[in-house]
Nucleic acid binder design. Structure first.
Length: 115
DNA sequence: CGATTGACGTACG
DNA sequence: TCGTACGCCAATC
């Protein structure tokens, strides 16, 4: 349809809701969010939603979303420097070469903790 | 409205 | 174990 439907909850908004629930100092992955929303194979869309999150008036902690191995793949979208890394470190995380240390311990799975 | 895109994930060599 | 190739799916242009 050319005319957009009056969906009150787009996929992006669903992603935002989950991201906002990530506790400070914890991180999750794009795939985990995608699976939580039921579309396990649309993890790429989650990243895209993050890209769109800076347009949102809400404060989306997009820096708490990394890829499945704990690498800050989206850091380039946060600013010219290491803004994403700085935000995470400020929350108590340890990062080395864009890799989150003890990622398994810091990992927050919406499918487990939020269910 | 069709083609392109993309901050991923999994499979395969 | 590491690097490369492809599939996914919804928003954007």
């Amino acid at each position: 349809m050319v005319v957009p439907t009056n969906k009150h909850h787009s996929f992006f908004e669903e992603v935002f809701e989950v991201v906002k629930l990530i506790p400070p100092g914890r991180v999750t992955s794009y795939g985990a969010i995608a699976r939580y929303l039921g579309t396990g194979k649309s993890s790429r869309m989650v990243g895209w939603a993050m890209n769109s999150s800076h347009s949102s008036t809400e404060n989306i902690p997009a820096h708490r979303v990394v890829n499945r191995i704990g690498v800050l793949t989206g850091k380039a979208h946060f600013g010219p420097g290491k803004e994403m890394e700085m935000l995470l470190v400020n929350e108590g995380l340890e990062i080395e070469n864009d890799q989150i240390k003890n990622f398994k311990e810091k990992y927050w799975d919406p499918n487990v903790d939020l269910l």
